[in-house]
Design a binder for these strands. Structure first.
Lengths: 269, 269
DNA sequence: GCGACTTTGTGCCTGCGTTCACAAATGGAT
DNA sequence: ATCCATTTGTGAACGCAGGCACAAAGTCGC
């Protein structure tokens, strides 16, 4: 993947990555003086990577809850989430101490607390810009997986799309972006436009007051420091997989016992 | 984002983040004995995060090339890619020494070398499983952004879709997955199914010999150690943004001079 | 041909995130 | 009531990636 982490700072692309980030340069040093660890400041201390994992834990926990599981140990949860149990406990410790030693965690409590930390207790309204193939798919998700993220506005430049409802929401012209985003309290913008339009769209979203952006366009967006951009880049994901395919092929070639060699060199066929 | 990095190892989800990467636990220590730095082993030494960035550099370079730029300095390229110039040079050093001191890099050379490292010199055939909204969008990309990743097979369980071409490729029943993947030399599988089907589909892909998987389903896939999974998880991406929205709101609240406090504590309203 | 300037490539330091390992805490058994 | 088994929460060590800063190397002008 390749997730554009970082907060503006002039240019700061990725991070899946990673992480997809792993994403390019992490948040980086912020200029603010390190104040006393206020209760409200705790959130700041949570590493971005831990936040991503908390979201995964939340999903696993929700599934557990639906299956009627009431209590779970860090070991069980870590296996289900695919992480080291120590890491899981440390991640949960960022949220607070809600476990019972010798027993484990109460699923419902954990869900509540993670939702609180992730800010999922209130809705965040979403606007999707660019109603092509991907935009359609996104709009039709209707509220995004897991809910809490209702799509309330769609934008495009194509006059033929205006007013036509996609996933129940009519498409507006992009020129109305400022006004519509303001009146519908959009806090998250999703860019699903062709690459050349992405930067301009991004700037219009920012002008409209949107401070969090999810970018599907294969472009490195340049944004002000106070705007948070995350990037989902299919091409980068594919290329990373390609890298691993190639590496794997190399390994097989160089590890194979019956590969023709001269002085240790593998002879290409 | 939240990109599932890691290589199987029983469970290893995201990395997303960063990636999602952060993503979750990075590649992690591999059990293999550290052999002498074989030429072919160099690829192994490249950090996953650097690989993700190389893919970004490649795109920027391609754009440069199209604009007729012949030579570029690390400073220029780093600005365009949104990274620190030192980091960029270090990333490029993983690829090799192809720069000219005092001058910069020849764009065409850099493109070639990065493509070589990423294994983009040969095609990697892609199969998409799950032809819903997202599957349609993916199939219609037709060869995926940047080419080099031709989609050669589509699968679903819905009988109504069988044989119908989407993006020029007819849909096959998932029961044919092993046979079709083998004959069409699929090396990358894309999972775009509903969550409950994802794990089973994953296992069928693995049985069919596919060792690299891009997973769009919001599920933590359990795979053998030799399978590489990357995850694109919209819900996780949204929730990370939500976290930042909430954090930002907190900052405003706690930085505001007229917030009621007692002994520095913010009084919740 | 020589010197000054530019830019690469990299050794070293720093900081962050992961992992280990254990003390503290809790429940249940005796 | 006490002891044992279990599991959390976290201090500390470790390792890796990022960033700085400079030496090496090469170009251009004179």
């Amino acid at each position: 993947m390749a997730v554009q982490r970082g907060r503006g700072r002039g240019p700061v692309p990725n991070g899946p990555a990673d992480a997809v980030t792993e994403p390019m340069s992490a948040v980086g040093p912020n200029g603010r003086p390190v104040s006393a660890p206020d209760v409200r400041e705790r959130a700041r201390a949570i590493p971005e990577a831990a936040v991503a994992r908390l979201a995964v834990y939340l999903r696993v926990l929700s599934a557990m809850s639906e299956q009627g599981v009431g209590t779970i140990s860090s070991e069980e949860l870590s296996v289900a989430a695919g992480v080291n149990s120590a890491k899981l406990r440390k991640d949960l410790s960022y949220v607070g101490s809600y476990g019972t030693r010798g027993v484990g965690y109460e699923v419902s409590v954990l869900i509540e607390e993670i939702e609180r930390i992730l800010g999922l207790t209130s809705n965040h309204y979403v606007a999707v810009v660019g109603i092509g193939n991907l935009g359609h798919a996104l709009a039709n998700y209707g509220g995004f997986p897991g809910r809490g993220f209702p799509v309330v506005a769609l934008f495009d430049v194509d006059e033929d799309l205006m007013g036509i409802p996609v996933g129940g929401i009519p498409v507006n012209h992009i020129d109305e972006i400022a006004q519509v985003c303001a009146s519908r309290e959009v806090s998250i913008g999703v860019i699903a436009t062709p690459p050349p339009a992405a930067q301009a769209v991004c700037e219009r979203l920012v002008s409209a007051g949107v401070r969090c952006i999810l970018n599907f366009a294969p472009v490195v967006l340049q944004v002000p420091d106070d705007v948070e951009v995350r990037k989902v880049d299919l091409a980068v994901e594919m290329q990373i997989l390609s890298f691993h395919v190639a590496r794997r092929a190399d390994e097989v070639a160089s590890n194979g016992a019956d590969v023709p060699r001269v002085d240790g060199m593998v002879i290409p066929r």
